[in-house]
Design a protein around this nucleic acid. Sequence first.
DNA 1: AAAATAGTGTCTATGAGACACTATAGT
DNA 2: ACTATAGTGTCTCATAGACACTATTTT
Lengths: 254, 254
Amino acid sequence: MATKKTPEKSQGGRGSDAERAFLADYRLDAYDRPSVAVDVVVLTVLEGHLLCGLYERTEHPDLGRLALPGGFMRLDESLDEAARRLLREKAGLTDVFLEQLFTFGEPGRDPRGRIVTVAYFALVDKERFLQATMLRRRLSIPWPGETGGEVDVVNDDGSTGALAFDHASILGTAVKRLRGKLDYTPVGFQLLPAEFTLRELQDIHEAVRGEDVNKDSFRRRMLASGHLEATGNHERNVTWRPAELYRFIRRSAV
Amino acid sequence: MATKKTPEKSQGGRGSDAERAFLADYRLDAYDRPSVAVDVVVLTVLEGHLLCGLYERTEHPDLGRLALPGGFMRLDESLDEAARRLLREKAGLTDVFLEQLFTFGEPGRDPRGRIVTVAYFALVDKERFLQATMLRRRLSIPWPGETGGEVDVVNDDGSTGALAFDHASILGTAVKRLRGKLDYTPVGFQLLPAEFTLRELQDIHEAVRGEDVNKDSFRRRMLASGHLEATGNHERNVTWRPAELYRFIRRSAV
DNA sequence: AAAATAGTGTCTATGAGACACTATAGT
DNA sequence: ACTATAGTGTCTCATAGACACTATTTT
């Protein structure tokens, strides 16, 4: 099949003199611009429950409410870079699994003005989560499967922790996405340390899904996935038969 | 389980006098702001091929190249509303399946300045697609399954239609998402008119996936999905045995 | 009648769920 | 020895693929 690229430089394409002249006169600020923020949902699993990292707002609006770590994107960084910078600055977290989630832009979502926020979600194992400088709250997910909807958090005393802005909606979107990804991508490993038992992996899946999974089928499926490598080591200091430790391996090209 | 909401209005919560005073002094424009645009990938299937709606750029930068329909978000509309407005204004399309796709914000993606674009994808049946005021191009997808990557378009003469900005990347993201959704959500119907045959539905799936599907299994799966309703009518003006026409029904609560 | 596709019935392979059974640690 | 969990083997059931067969239209 013959394909040809049209010559463009001579016609004023990218990098041409005509383009340079046009851009020199271009006024992007002729349009009103919103602010662009990045918010990050940091999730882990601890003792069979999904946890999220949050901060208590020290300023208006929604003073005192819990909010996701976030901030404004700088003009010299990409969205991904902004998310990683905020995780580092606010929570002290680096090198975590991070993925863009959804962009929230309802006109009234922030009373300070028009702020479009690009939400990300990050997954970390429980050790790193507990070292991060954030408040930790258990999630209260009122819907099954991938139904979707808002998700609030539960304080240690059992009271509901009201979230700031539309962050309950963002959190709900993150949980829905994570549940959806869990079955067909090797994302559960991101919530575990380097070596783990099959039971620990199953606990992760059950905590994320909010329901039990079949043990036999789960073991078979995981072992057949090609993502697990037996280490030969076994867990210690348990009062039952020690399970073998496995390691996550990125599957070679299929 | 006892849950209690902390009283907030008295402490300066949403709607309080203290919050109003804070917001009155708040200067959001202390931060530099990017522009926020919305681009829409309009897809359909025609004669076994995925098609996309595009425009030839009449201004710098990337003058003469093909670009997705898009434009800047207004401060008084949501992102979804901006996408629907742009579809209506640019293509004359209303009431189409529309879903947020991904937000692209690399600092160098547009030489006019820092423009973050929230990409959407829209699905329409071929009749409506052909009525829309857009250029139509077949997609050239150089990767299988949901591998992902850039996607270019093919002109009628077989030459490659170079896309403006990072739109080949956006188009690739749209195709990847559509392929991913096709198997577990009833999204294929969005690419067909109200009544269609099982063969037409299979053609949609094959065009989107870029590979053949098993006829027997496909029929069984679709009929068992609960999303199809036989109309009793049959197709006409075909040179073979006419197939029954089906209608898409939104499945009641599972 | 021939050609082409619609649509049905059945066999087989595969994977999930269920369950029984053995193995191995601590107490 | 008892208990709790790890790990294996096997049976059944549901679903996808394969294939044979019948049905219905135009030419």
